[in-house]
Nucleic acid binder design. Structure first.
Lengths: 258, 258
DNA sequence: CGCACCATTGAGTAAAATCAACCTATGTGG
DNA sequence: CCACATAGGTTGATTTTACTCAATGGTGCG
């Protein structure tokens, strides 16, 4: 099953028939190399994109070169549903690793939403989750210390990655430079470097070759970063892997760092 | 005409017939006093709200009492379209002045959207604009100095207020304490006070009785704060008042601080 | 009047930024 | 295979920005 269906599956469970109108969509698949722009600020957007593989960033550049990364697009993420409103992009989207992306014309996409209430509901959840992630990003930057910001972001990325792939990995390969993390969290690369060094010394994370970050003790890091998954609006937890439990919809969820 | 229709009118122009399904909606009107909660974090949301009068804030509280205001709800603003996805609120909404609010059951609202493409498009724009305002808030907090943040926020609030009321006011009555501004911008009240004093001394703003803030030179403040209205996605400018010009849809817009 | 709430101001401190040097991998061309 | 360039990460010294703590004063209200 595609990462995309797995991701939406975190909110609703659709059977093959319900996926029908989606599977029948006229679409193309496009590959972007690391560094390629997917959407440029000012572009008229006429397509909906779904990330199948790779990571991308959504960011704004200020006149003087400062950059703010607004959020990260991971496998399974959908953007820009805002294109349905026929507007110009107010920010840019760039692949930071090689990305495989599904591209669907906005009008075709709208037709699909109108003919299937269950698909519309699933995509609506996706849009709501994205907005919720933006709000959490505001809280993270506005009211947390550097260490809390970094820990919180790592936990979010890890949790979102698990949601899309179903793989319960503590060891996440994060293709982000110190500058990327800094521009996402409102810090400088130097300070990110120092803070992450301190986090390594405090046994919160370890780092290996090529951006591989391991969260040593998820609960401890979650406590220190005040991370709580509520804002991701996950209705159930479906994890595939050795010795993992599978939760049913409706089963109450632990609040912290699951 | 209601502030609400005026606000959506910034994006689309609908005639009486097109507004029909909206006017026919079963709704109630509710008044909240300053300090009243409109939505509490954890509540199941089953209603769409439209602010007719007054100001409200959307915010999250951290465990240790820190507060982050995510955004401000002004007359004409619609929330929570996220209720259409049947989720629990991950944040709270509180009136900061007396608010008159239209309350519509989510399912009734969805029915209306489905029977009118032009209304659906108008509300979709409203949701897109809200998300765009969130992204700009991230940029503001993440990559701007205290003075830039305050100037930028004041300009946004002024512009949004003009959009909803049609009154081109330089003198905006902002019902916000220093603590509110601080919690919105990731600062402390003390620093907000100091920075705004400096802004008064620099003739960027003046302040009168009861939170009345006048933007002395909008263009100068916009330049200093790097404020640009693009992210508000306004298609046309309709201003009522002495000696004001009225722009037609399609007419190009100036980028700065209009 | 006395209380509550808010804004302001001063003094000292802390967190993060800046500037700059240096180190390590990786990749390139001779 | 080595010389060199590039990009990213780290570390030290110093400065800046914003925070903290604390006192003071105004305003509105019962």
């Amino acid at each position: 099953m595609s990462v995309f269906k797995k991701r939406l599956g975190q909110y609703v469970t659709l059977d093959d028939e319900e996926w029908g109108p989606f599977d029948a969509l006229d679409h193309k698949e496009q590959v972007f190399l690391a560094g390629d722009d997917i959407v440029r600020a000012g572009d008229a957007i006429r397509h909906v994109f779904i990330v199948m593989e790779g990571w991308a960033i959504r960011y704004r550049l200020l006149e003087d070169g400062r950059r703010q990364i607004v959020n990260f697009m991971l496998p399974g993420d959908v953007f820009d549903l805002q294109s349905l409103a026929d507007l110009k992009a107010d920010h840019s989207l760039t692949a930071i690793t090689e990305c495989k992306v599904l591209v669907i014309a906005s009008d075709v996409f709208v037709d699909m939403l109108q003919c299937s209430a269950s698909l519309a509901s699933a995509f609506w959840w996706s849009a709501v989750q994205e907005e919720s992630i933006l709000r959490e990003q505001i809280v993270r930057i506005g009211r947390r210390s550097a260490r809390e910001r970094i820990g919180h972001l790592l936990l979010e990325l890890q949790r979102r990655f698990v949601g899309a792939t179903g793989l319960d990995v503590e060891r996440l390969t994060v293709p982000l430079t110190r500058a990327d993390i800094a521009d996402a969290l409102g810090l400088t690369p130097v300070h990110v470097s120092r803070t992450m060094s301190a986090m390594r010394r405090a046994d919160l994370i370890t780092e290996g070759r090529g951006g591989e970050i391991t969260i040593v003790d998820r609960n401890k890091l979650a406590r220190l970063s005040h991370f709580d998954t509520d804002y991701l609006h996950l209705k159930k937890l479906q994890i595939i892997g050795a010795g993992r439990r599978v939760m049913e919809p409706g089963e109450p969820q632990r609040g912290l760092a699951d």
